[in-house]
Design a protein around this nucleic acid. Structure first.
Lengths: 154, 154
DNA sequence: ATAATATCCGATTAAAATAATCGGAATTTA
DNA sequence: TAAATTCCGATTATTTTAATCGGATATTAT
């Protein structure tokens, strides 16, 4: 089974959420509760995203997180990078160039590099905005935004 | 880190190898030694590939494995399928439709489905032949084939 | 026939990666 | 200064993946 890590999954869901509630600041606790994601885990992920300028973080009572840029400026590949989740379809094509003992016989490196590049380009071409626009329930959520803006606007 | 499993890696390497030494039968033991892959593990992988008509297997003293089809007829996606390694970028898009408790809030399913479909198409479009042709050392190996044909032709 | 060489199969163990938790420090605002 | 928050390192738990074990069954050469 090949799949994205939970960290990526949580990050994508959270960023999509923040992208929909643009301009509103959510604490890690709120996001954890609203999205049903383990708090301790999510808070670390959020810190990583803040460090990479995908999120803006603010300390204190009225602190929290919000998007640092427009959703269309955030590429999915940047999220992977921020979370230290490089895509490497096989060991020998990984970034850290770890040497495979089988490299003298195994010839899949070059083709795998090309495949990986294609997948990387694919992921790199998608922005958070597209992710948001593809959501089926977009309209329903937008209605909720209205209510929440009231709720959160002090 | 997102990567293919060892099983996939071993399978790709082995199939590429068999594709280069076309027409020659190799035992699981030989492949294990030649390619430096754990025998017990590889033999199971080979059996799975044989079951899915990617390899032909023969019992007995002169038995072994060889490709069941031309390399250009074998799509990488078929290998994934044969080895029970479905691609599912996130849990909720997996084939077995396992229900995610967060599905009422989390909206990434639809966009992830589309991303997954794109990656699947990409992998599906590549054949074993292309994998072989991309190998840097192809010429060197082809020279070896000559020698091995002598070695293995009775 | 029989010994040698194979594939095949289920179950178990080992290792690695991932996910989650714990305990606390530092920062900001009311 | 107290409450709310981000931030940080280390540890534990869980899950997945990889490897091994023990043996059954099939084929071929002698």
């Amino acid at each position: 089974m090949i799949k994205f890590s939970k960290k990526i999954e949580y990050a994508l869901g959270t960023l999509q959420y923040l992208g929909m509630f643009r301009g509103i600041s959510f604490s890690a606790r709120e996001l954890s509760e609203n999205l049903n994601i383990p708090y301790e885990f999510l808070s670390k992920t959020l810190a990583q995203l803040a460090k990479s300028d995908i999120l803006i973080s603010n300390f204190g009572t009225k602190g929290g997180y919000q998007l640092a840029k427009e959703p269309k400026e955030i590429r999915i590949s940047a999220i992977f990078k921020a979370l230290n989740e490089p895509l490497s379809v096989v060991e020998c094509v990984s970034g850290d160039e770890s040497i495979c003992e089988r490299s003298n016989i195994c010839l899949i490196k070059t083709p795998m590099q090309q495949l990986q590049e294609k997948i990387t380009n694919l992921i790199g071409s998608i922005t958070l905005e597209e992710l948001i626009n593809l959501s089926v329930l977009k309209n329903d959520i937008n209605n909720n935004v209205q209510q929440n803006e009231v709720k959160y606007a002090k």
